[in-house]
Design a binder for these strands. Structure first.
Length: 138
DNA sequence: GCCAACGTTGGC
DNA sequence: GCCAACGTTGGC
């Protein structure tokens, strides 16, 4: 099983609260090839951190991949895809970007190094670390 | 609100 | 196929 991190802008686009209310939701609007490539690698049952960019800048919770890639109906060229994600659970305490930056073992994360990549992989070790920082069991 | 990073577009 | 111009993201 693989781990991922999905970014969203809570005020403008989609927030953790929305996700909790909705349960299952297509992850849409991705218009970046690297992000798309990562989405195409996702398998049902993979887990992903749900990250708030913008004002909050923190990992809020965990979602699971509920449906693997399928064509984005909004994309008339047919090059971009969607996956459906399902709410798993919230972190007890959100883990902020500044905490992540202050943690040496997490400093290689794309979140820190490639700030603009909105769909990115997370290695198993970082996953555990962030879960622990968030007060939950991986 | 600014700006750095970086991806995309379009002219050649 | 290169590269300048432009647009967008996201942290500060």
């Amino acid at each position: 099983m693989a781990y991922w991190l999905l970014k969203t802008e809570p005020e403008i686009d989609w927030s953790w609260d929305d996700q909790v209310k909705q349960g299952v939701e297509p992850w849409d609007g991705i218009r970046n090839y690297q992000a798309r490539n990562n989405m195409q690698l996702m398998k049902k049952g993979d887990k992903a951190f749900f990250y708030h960019s913008g004002k909050d800048k923190c990992v809020m919770g965990i979602v699971t991949i509920h449906r693997e890639e399928y064509p984005d109906p909004e994309d008339e060229k047919g090059v971009f895809v969607l996956v459906d994600v399902k709410t798993d659970r919230a972190l007890k305490t959100p883990v902020t970007l500044s905490e992540i930056k202050a943690t040496p073992s997490l400093s290689e994360m794309p979140l820190v190094k490639h700030t603009r990549l909105s769909v990115q992989p997370v290695d198993a070790k970082s996953w555990k670390t962030i879960c622990k920082m968030g007060g939950i069991k991986p």
